[in-house]
């Protein structure tokens, strides 16, 4: 999936350059970055949204099972991961702010920090999965675990993709492809990452806390 991402960022950035010299800070028409990413963002949100509702309504028919199985979840790693992603998103905002002022080096550093936080999320999540799988829990154990595992694994894959995208943006920033005047690529990658954060913001309370 990185290939199409590469394939449209380059011409897309060119298109944005050609299309507008709008000051994006002053109530511009379009959301930040390449509009194509926003189509994905809304589609992803739709998919996750449906999944969340499926979880919630299934829980309504299996309240005791869900309450009981939920107790086995590691709430600490869930909470820490929420903080990690929120912070990582914050770092991305800082990176964008930096490039908007032409501070390329700072942009690179903030992006690196954001990706590092993403790596931390991945590590914590892997440990959490490992613990569950070692305890013999799988997709077939019961309906709660089926949802818990598929939701968090599905989200996990999006974290990985997001990190890849940020990595690509970092690479380009490092090479000096962005400036105060044109940094649509940074906005594009940032928007996707914020979506990944947003999804987890809903997921954590829903799966780990609500009972």
């Amino acid at each position: 999936m990185a290939a199409p991402a590469v394939g449209f960022f380059l011409p897309a950035t060119q298109a944005i350059m050609n299309a507008s010299t709008l000051d994006k800070d002053v109530n511009s028409a379009m959301p930040p970055g390449d509009f194509a990413i926003w189509i994905f963002i809304y589609a992803e949100l739709l998919a996750f949204g449906i999944f969340f509702l499926a979880y919630a309504f299934t829980r309504a028919h299996n309240v005791e099972l869900f309450n009981a199985s939920q107790l086995s979840l590691n709430r600490e790693s869930g909470a820490i991961n929420t903080l990690v992603l929120i912070t990582s998103s914050y770092f991305v905002v800082r990176a964008l702010a930096a490039i908007k002022r032409g501070r390329q080096v700072f942009c690179v550093r903030w992006l690196a920090a954001a990706i590092a936080m993403g790596g931390l999320f991945v590590a914590i999540k892997l440990a959490e999965f490992h613990a569950k799988f070692s305890a013999g829990i799988s997709l077939h154990t019961n309906t709660f675990y089926m949802f818990y595992l598929s939701l968090t694994i599905f989200h996990f894959m999006h974290v990985l993709l997001g990190m890849l995208i940020l990595g690509f943006v970092l690479f380009k920033a490092h090479r000096g492809h962005y400036s105060a005047e044109q940094h649509a690529g940074v906005e594009t990658g940032a928007s996707y990452w914020h979506m990944v954060d947003l999804v987890w913001i809903i997921l954590f309370p829903l799966v780990y806390v609500i009972r």
């Binding site: 511009s28 959301p31 905002v93 940032a190 979506m195 913001i201």
Partner: peptide, 19 residues
């Protein structure tokens, strides 16, 4: 969740400043 989500949308995603 609503507040957090809206904050991320408005300030992190920057949607506060677009149409």
């Amino acid at each position: 969740v609503l507040i957090k989500g809206q904050m991320v949308a408005d300030f992190f995603m920057g949607l506060r400043r677009v149409r």
